[in-house]
Every structure is written in C-alpha cells, then in structure tokens.
Amino acid sequence: MTVSLKTDTIILSGTCGAEEVETLVGYLESLPGLSVDLGAATAIHTALWQALMVFRPRMVGASMSSLVDNRLLLALNAFLDDTQEPPVKLAESSSSQ
C-alpha cells in the first residue's frame, strides 16, 4: 500500500504511481479534513500532486524523502499559499458529504 490511511492522516509511501491517484482521491473526497503526509514517499506521480492541488488537504511533515525533489513540495506549498481561497464549490460539496 503506497497510499494508506492512518487515523486522520493519509500517508504516501514508496513509489506512488499514477494509478494510486484514485485511492488518494477516494480518501480526500470521502473524508474531508484529512491531512496528508508525504514524508515516506520516494516518488510521487504528477497526477497525485495535482489531486493535492485540487483538494488542498493540510500537509504535514515539512520535509520529504531525499529521493523526491523537495522543490516540488515547496512549489506545492507556494501554490497553496498563493491561492488562499479554497475553491468554494469544491469545499462546500466536500463538507456536505
């Protein structure tokens, strides 16, 4: 399991390929308010990064495994900071679930 749920946190570990995005999106959609921890991942496919950008979960763990480019996390955080306003419709619909 490269995408797994542990209490309130989704943990990405090992090599997370594009096919994992469905699992990730499944958790993010069904259980809003979860945090995501990328610390144990060694490779993360673009599709997963994109899902994080869309669902904007809280990111825990400031550093990444040395195998993943840390700049990607920095850039993701920069994106999340720059676009403070969460997409309204998405937030509403996910909270209503």
Binding site: V21, V25, E29, A43, M53, V54, L72, A75, D82, S94
Partner: peptide, 29 residues
C-alpha cells in the same frame, strides 16, 4: 513534474492549475 525535475540546476519551479478546479463529480484525476 518528474520530467521537469530532470532539468539540471533548477533555480525556480512553480506549478498551478490551468483551469479552476472543477466540481468534484467532474474532476478527473
């Protein structure tokens, strides 16, 4: 993102969504 990470001496990197995030039922991961 893996492709662009292959650029050597990456001084700056940013990514954003081209379009606003769609409705969840329309979102295609």
């Amino acid at each position: 993102l893996a492709t662009i990470s292959r650029l050597s001496d990456l001084r700056y990197l940013a990514f954003s969504l081209k379009e606003d995030p769609p409705l969840p039922q329309d979102y295609d991961p």
